[in-house]
């Protein structure tokens, strides 16, 4: 049953890594089991909830739908890489706390990264664009409004301060959302 294994090279939150993964292994599983990054959450495992959202070359993707091997040679950003280079919270993270945009917190890493992908490609989004960007991220606790407020506030702050971009997200930002 041991499936074929492959070594892949990728940049994780700005640092080059090489890991061995199985051919069938999802990126989400590789994150947890090979890279010991447990910030991304599994809410459904089938691409329906967005809790596993990570950034692949700056684009938000559902890590439960991407095979680990597909990340070969690419830049991967996770919630663990969202803070500023000095370790302090990013404006987005700060805004989530200030606006109480989280309760149980299980959707939060995915929510923050969907927002990060949006702000990368569109630093001054309208409310509608924010809603669109997180429409694939289910949250059962917050009722979304505080999340939308937090993202809007962070966008304003980052735009004003000339955007401090965390290294993880520094790759070219594609359009929209991946699988």
């Amino acid at each position: 049953m041991e499936a074929t294994r492959r070594t892949i090279r990728l940049v994780v939150n700005g640092k080059p890594r090489s890991i061995e993964v199985a051919a069938h292994e999802t990126l989400l599983a590789a994150l947890k089991e090979r890279l010991y990054l447990t910030g991304a959450k599994e809410g459904c495992g089938v691409g329906e909830c967005g809790a596993c959202t990570v950034l692949l070359d700056g684009r938000a993707v559902n890590a439960c739908l991407v095979l680990a091997v597909e990340a070969d040679g690419r830049e991967l950003g996770t919630i663990e890489g969202e803070a500023r280079p000095d370790g302090s919270l990013s404006a987005l993270q700060r805004a989530f706390i200030d606006h109480a945009a989280l309760q149980c917190g299980f959707c939060t890493p995915g929510m923050v990264l969907s927002a990060r992908a949006l702000l990368r490609r569109n630093p001054r989004p309208s409310r509608e664009e924010i809603v669109e960007a997180i429409a694939g991220n289910l949250c059962r606790c917050t009722g979304y409004e505080p999340v939308i407020d937090a993202i809007a506030a962070a966008a304003e702050e980052e735009a004003a301060e000339g955007s401090v971009v965390p290294p993880a997200a520094s790759a070219g930002a594609g359009e929209g959302r991946g699988p």
Binding site: K32, K41, E42, E82, L102
Partner: peptide, 19 residues
Amino acid sequence: VPRIDGEAKVRGCATYVHD
């Protein structure tokens, strides 16, 4: 007073049984 669990949750270091 802001939520005391906020930082752990936005940094992804709040550990759930899932993790």
